[in-house]
Design a protein around this nucleic acid. Structure first.
Length: 673
DNA sequence: CGCCCTCGAGTTCC
DNA sequence: CTCGAGGGCG
């Protein structure tokens, strides 16, 4: 590139970066991924390196952060809050070490001690304490001058308003990161979606955007946290090491950067960096790298700083997990439970070394609320080994012809009608090939057909080998068919065959549940079974008839109608019967009903019976067994390790009894079950 | 309109 | 098993 071309490109890059900076720092709504931004900034830095005369004082490469927003009072930091240079890989970390070595001399650097701590994806904050009391809190801003956000900072729950030590220093400026737990970030975005507000692309923007609210009540409603990583100006206290600072901060009542490690030499640093990157998903906070600091503070002065960043710190960045791309089209995929999920087909984009071409859009309700359209530029996140997902839209980049995304009218796999089940659309086809193995696994599961030896893996196997083409085919399997399949020698093949044979007698409610009608679980199936003498009557029932039943509303009625209204489903059901499946319609035998009208909830593990048995017993004796505790619950039976239901019961004043007491209560009838 | 409770998906442990 | 969502009832 000649000088003239370089000048043009540099101007272009400056304009772009300035625009991106504005969206990122001032609006807290980035319109490009960090990766993309970084690349452009590095390109500009390279041009300026080669042709120094292109470097203008206002160049984005010379700047730290953004200028403070007008609405906030400005706050001048007593000591500048510098930014960090990035290392993107172990090689660049070693380069950093090399520079340190060159300045300090190899002897001193060889056993040099580094303190390595996590770099959380948040926004920096300085909090000033005088005589132990919090006086002011300010954002970093451009490094020299930030925004005074004291009232907002006071709403951060784990930020001490007063230092938790008896002899506080005259003054200490504590620095740290305002962050949001990943869980809280997801929850916040869900809430924003509900309210039709624009979403945050990542926890950092959520933290920054929340902290810089003009209305501090909004800040207070956001789950912000503060993690301290250092100090600025101090009076009446001094430290010798970074590790000492962090220990002190912890003692003073702060959540201090953790996990951290003191490393001797660069090899240990690289090892910790790689360890953290591999474990990054196991932390509450989004971690985008580690910060490596020379531990000995005396050396900080020797090393000094460049115009932009200190020479004694560096950020070891992890592979990015976010990028922007464009949605080219949308496909509709049917999952094992029959849920139809919109999947965005994207322009291929590299995220942390992996090319991503498709990303989940979760569900149609979300797509509509977020107003995502084909043609939109979106943020895509790939966390761990999870399926990539579209996180948010960048409305600024929307082309005029962007097409809304609509749920399909019919199941894309078998053209059966879809019913809306909450936020999801579900296929009502009993034999739908896309969910076949899921249907079979569920049907064969505990409390339904109860076919031992037929779980998820075997279901997939049966479908993949073509032995089973609809759920009824399970009952046509022959010994010869399964013998020799992976995992099926004589014994297991025989066992499976007899398990299938034994399962053919099935009570009406169980059979109903096994059909997998959306919205019809065990309880609803029992209600239906009580009101219809047989499957035929239920099958023919109108929506109105169904809705007249207590416990069945319009949604469930519609789902049931939609299911039985399909010719194909009726055929499969008939096929069940031809295979010898017998539905048992049992009249209620009038036994003793000592628990009539009593509601039970079981929590924790019981020792003398399974939970299912206990619940069956309660029902048999005329009581009700539900799964959540409320004021209407009569008894909570607590076994080993009771869960949150125990606490709920205490709170509501519901009677809690032990397993023994329960046995006493039902003792006389135990044998009859 | 508010509460209860079922459904179903997700999480985590063995 | 837990938890959130929302269907259904009063």
């Amino acid at each position: 590139m000649d000088r003239k071309g370089a000048a043009r490109r540099a101007r272009e890059l400056r304009d772009l970066l300035n625009k991106y900076d504005y969206h990122y720092y001032v609006l807290d709504r980035p319109i490009v991924s960090d990766q993309e931004y970084d690349d452009l900034k590095r390109e500009l830095a390279a041009l300026e390196e080669r042709w120094p005369e292109l470097r203008t004082p206002d160049s984005p490469t010379q700047r730290v952060g953004g200028t403070p927003r007008e609405e906030f009072t400005r706050y001048r930091h007593a000591q500048a809050m510098v930014s960090l240079d990035d290392a993107r890989n172990p090689g660049e970390l070693r380069d950093f070490h090399g520079r340190v070595e060159r300045i300090l001399g190899p002897l001193m650097a060889s056993g040099l001690e580094y303190l390595v701590e996590p770099k959380f994806d948040g926004t920096s904050l300085e909090v000033v304490y005088e005589k132990g009391a919090m006086i002011v809190a300010a954002t970093r801003g451009d490094g020299m001058v930030g925004e005074d956000v004291t009232p907002n900072a006071r709403t951060i729950r784990n930020l001490p308003l007063r230092l938790q030590i008896s002899d506080p220093p005259e003054r200490i400026d504590v620095r740290g990161e305002v962050i949001m737990r990943v869980k809280d970030f997801d929850e916040l975005n869900r809430r924003l979606t509900e309210d039709g507000e624009p979403l945050f692309a990542n926890p950092r923007n959520a933290a920054a955007g929340s902290l810089r609210q003009l209305d501090q009540r909004i800040t207070a409603s956001r789950p912000l946290r503060f993690v301290a990583w250092g100090v600025g100006l101090t009076q009446g206290i001094s430290f010798k090491k970074q590790s000492e600072i962090l220990d002190w901060l912890k003692k003073a009542g702060f959540e201090a950067s953790s996990p951290r490690r003191t490393c001797r030499g660069i090899d240990e640093v690289v090892e910790f960096y790689e360890e953290m990157e591999s474990k990054r998903d196991s932390f509450h906070y989004e971690m985008d790298g580690v910060v490596v600091k020379v531990n000995d503070l005396a050396l900080w002065e020797t090393l000094g700083s460049t115009a932009r960043a200190p020479r004694f710190w560096i950020a070891g960045k992890f592979k990015p997990r976010e990028a922007t791309s464009v949605i080219r089209r949308v496909i509709h995929s049917v999952g094992p439970s029959g849920t139809v999920t919109p999947i965005a087909i994207l322009d291929p984009v590299n995220i942390g070394g992996v090319t991503v071409q498709r990303a989940s859009l979760h569900n149609y309700e979300l797509v509509e609320k977020m107003d995502i359209r084909v043609g939109d530029t979106v943020f895509v996140r790939r966390a761990g080994d999870v399926i990539p997902e579209v996180v948010s839209v960048i409305p600024e980049h929307r082309p005029p012809d962007a097409e809304p995304i609509r749920p399909p009218k019919k199941c894309p796999a078998d053209a059966a009608p879809l019913v809306k089940d909450g936020a999801y659309y579900k296929c009502t086809g009993l034999a739908c090939p896309a969910k076949l193995s899921g249907t079979i696994a569920q049907m064969a599961g505990r409390g339904l057909f109860d076919i031992e030896g037929l779980g998820g893996k075997t279901a997939v196997l049966l479908v993949e080998t073509g032995l089973v083409k609809d759920p009824a085919d399970v009952f046509y399997l022959r010994y010869e068919d399964i013998l020799g399949l992976p995992g099926f020698a004589e014994l297991s093949a025989r066992n499976l065959m007899s398990a299938i044979e034994a399962s053919k007698e099935i009570e009406f409610p169980r059979f109903l549940t096994a059909l997998g009608i959306p919205g019809v679980g065990g309880v609803t199936a029992s209600i239906l079974a009580e009101h219809f003498p047989s499957l035929d009557e239920l099958s023919a029932a109108s929506k109105e008839t169904l809705m007249s039943i207590k416990g069945i509303g319009p949604e469930t009625a519609r789902s049931v109608r939609e299911f039985f209204g399909q010719e194909r489903n009726q055929e499969v059901i008939k096929k069940f019967f031809r295979a010898g499946v017998r539905v048992i319609y049992r009249k209620k035998e009038a036994g003793p009903a000592p628990l009539l009208g009593k509601t039970f909830v079981f929590t924790g593990a019981l020792s003398t019976m399974t939970r299912d048995e206990a619940e069956a017993l309660v029902v048999k004796l005329g009581g009700k067994a539900t799964s959540s505790v409320s004021r209407k619950t009569d008894y909570v039976v607590a076994g080993e390790n009771p869960g949150s239901k125990f606490a709920k019961a205490q709170q509501l004043g519901v009677k809690i009894i032990s397993e023994d007491e329960f046995r006493e209560m039902v003792g006389p009838y135990l044998k009859r079950v």
